[in-house]
Every structure is written in structure tokens, then in C-alpha cells.
Computed example of a mutant assay.
Amino acid sequence: MGQRRSPLDVTDLERLAARGWRGTEEGRLGDWLLRAGGGFTGRANSALVVGDPGRPLPDAVEAVARWYRDRGLRPAAMLPGRQARAAGAALAAAGWERDEDVLVLTAPLGPAAADGVPVELLPEPDDAWLAAYRHRGRPLPPTARAVLTTAEDVVFAAVRREPPPAPPAAVGRGVVTDGWLGVAAVTVEERYRRQGLATAVMAALQRWGAGRGARWLYLQVSASNAPARALYRRAGLIEHHRYHYRHAPG
């Protein structure tokens, strides 16, 4: 598969990933990216803490808190890699609560052969796809469709075992940004697990991404999600870095 070390550092990869999963509103605090998306997903509703906010860190923490509270959202910050340690300390001093680690995994995009499982690729998610993707086990809020479709070059994979309007047995989302394929929202209905459907979705998205010029793959997985981590390890992905969220008290 050639070179295995990512050509992007933590800051550049996080900025690229932020273009692949965006909020419906964005703002800036110096280099920090402020994102709001109606509360759907941490990535779309947190400040991406990379670079210099252009003011002392305690003042930056207060400014971030105001921005999110003005939008009716609990203030949140996403802190990737070692470069965010100073900001993390400032947030901790202000009482912001730490969430679990999330691993960012990468791999060169190699050939992915078809395995006989039909995977449908949709330009946007239909109602059945949205019903199959339950974020953290919960039904999706009304803003989910807008967040999922905001990126420029995006596709939605579905494996169907029953015709619509029944939800697909497995789904996933792919996005290509500057030669990188981002994979997210890989979900398999419980009764169809351990049948290779997640692997089939991953392979279909890789073929789609390669056809659009992608050479590298990235995805995010919670540190506590052991089954998904095992799946991605078998697929050849390795840890690039970690991030975590902090949330304002209350």
C-alpha cells in the first residue's frame, strides 16, 4: 500500500476533516473555527482548537462560551493532539468537563475489491437512510440532514435487505476533500451484524473515493468502541492522533 505515514500533521488533518463534516453556521476566533449545527454531533457544534485564537486563553474561553450560548447551545471545544494542551488547561480551569478520547485513524487508500454485497450509493440521504443512522443510538434531530449534506463532495452508502421504506441494514457516509476520503456514520442494524456489511460499506466508499481522486483515508472512532476499532484495525488503519471534547459546566 506504499507510504503509511500520513502526509498531513494534526492541525492540517483536522482542518481538512472540518471541511468534510461542517456545521450549518461557522465563525472564527483567530485561528479557531467555531461551528454550530443545531446540536447534532460534537464535530458540528464545537470550537476546533487549532492555532492561535488571537487573544489570551482565558479571554478566548469566554468568547467561545458566549458564541455558543448566543445560539442556544452548550459551549463545547474540540482539542486535538498535544498542540491543544494549553487551551485544554485553560478550559479545565474554567470548569469545562472532559469527554472521552476519540481516535483519528488513517491509511493509504488501496484497492478495495467487490465482495458480492450490493451497496447502493446515494447523492443525499433519503428518509430510510436517516432512519438507519441513529447517532449514539438516538433518533436524528431535524438539523441532521443539513449537517450531513453540507460538504461539497459527499455520498451516502446503503445495504438494503428489505425494499424501501424499510431502513437499510447498513449505512455509511463518505466525503472527498483534497485527495482524502473521510468515512463516517457507518452503522449496521443489530440483527444484521457479523455478516460483513460494515466491511462492504467501507469497501464501496473506498472505491467511490478512489474514483474521485482520493489517495488517503481518515475516520474517527471513540476509544470505547472496541468492535469498530477492531474492524478498522483489520482494514489497515492506524492511529494518527487523538482528540477530546470539553463542555462548559451546566
Rank of each mutant, 00 (worst) to 15 (best):
A89W: 13
L109N: 03
G174C: 08
G211I: 02
L48Q: 11
P141I: 05
Q3L: 15
Y68P: 00
Y192K: 03
T187L: 15
R28T: 08
A185Y: 08
R98W: 13
L237Q: 08
V188K: 10
P168T: 11
T187G: 10
Y68T: 00
R82E: 14
L122C: 11
P141M: 03
A166P: 08
R136Y: 15
T106S: 09
A89R: 15
P165R: 06
R74P: 11
G88S: 13
S46T: 02
A94F: 09
A86I: 12
E124H: 10
Q220A: 11
R66W: 08
A226N: 09
G209M: 03
A228V: 09
H244C: 10
H240T: 00
E97Y: 13
E100F: 14
V221H: 03
M1D: 15
R15M: 05
E120F: 09
A131Q: 10
A151I: 06
G39L: 01
V154I: 06
V155C: 10
A210P: 06
H135A: 13
D178P: 04
A128M: 06
G196V: 09
R66L: 11
H247W: 14
R74G: 13
L231H: 02
V176S: 04
R207A: 07
A63M: 04
L79K: 04
L16R: 01
W129I: 09
G95I: 11
T149H: 09
A92N: 08
R28H: 12
E25M: 12
L121E: 06
R15D: 06
E190V: 15
R22E: 13
R207G: 10
V49K: 03
A87M: 10
D127R: 15
R22S: 13
Y218T: 11
A94N: 08
A90V: 11
A107V: 01
G38A: 01
A228W: 08
P249D: 04
A84I: 05
P80S: 02
A146V: 10
A166N: 07
G2T: 08
D9I: 04
G2K: 05
D70C: 07
P167K: 07
R212Q: 04
L91T: 02
P227H: 12
R242Y: 03
R85Q: 14
W208S: 02
R85T: 15
A170K: 06
V154T: 12
V183S: 07
V147W: 02
D115W: 03
D101S: 15
A228C: 03
A114Q: 14
P80V: 01
G23T: 02
A92W: 13
A132D: 05
R191L: 12
A17S: 07
G54K: 05
G211Q: 00
P249M: 02
A36N: 04
A248S: 07
E25N: 04
L205E: 03
D126G: 11
A76I: 12
Q220W: 04
G72V: 02
G174S: 01
H135M: 14
G182M: 08
A63F: 03
V183C: 09
P108F: 01
P125K: 05
Q83D: 14
G110E: 11
P56E: 05
L140G: 12
P125H: 05
A94K: 09
G20E: 07
